[in-house]
């Protein structure tokens, strides 16, 4: 379905994840973050850039992998995105919900 986020029409699924990454823009990410009560700091953006890079490499994401990324450790990841960090950060990054159990 279509949704207007930060003035831009984007395709999203029923959970609000963008279904076409090409439609993502930083302002769309900021707006999704705002809905999750997160003000994006430069640290948030570093993590989001990393997630998008992994998505482009078709490399599946997990909490363990985040911890080994060298970008952020698991503790800080939970501090940056306190509620369901992997899901929330993926939504902000405009990439699909990770299907990982770990």
């Amino acid at each position: 379905m279509e949704k207007t986020i930060a003035g831009k029409a984007v395709a999203v699924n029923e959970e609000g994840y963008l279904t076409n990454f090409a439609q993502w823009e930083p302002r769309v990410g900021s707006e999704i973050a705002k809905e999750a009560n997160i003000d994006l700091s430069p640290r948030h953006w570093e993590v989001i850039n990393y997630l998008q890079g992994e998505f482009k490499n078709e490399s599946p994401l997990s909490i363990r992998k985040i911890g080994k990324s060298g970008v952020v450790d698991i503790k800080e990841f939970y501090q940056l995105f306190p509620n369901a960090p992997l899901k929330t950060s993926s939504k902000i990054a405009g990439i699909p919900k990770p299907a990982s159990c770990i």
């Binding site: 909490i63 363990r64 992998k65 911890g67 698991i74 503790k75 939970y78 770990i102």
Partner: peptide, 17 residues
């Protein structure tokens, strides 16, 4: 399947709160 060993898993749990 990228499952951590027990010790690493405990570290992950702890870091996750």
């Amino acid at each position: 399947i990228d499952m951590p060993d027990i010790h690493e898993f405990l570290d992950i749990l702890k870091a996750s709160g």
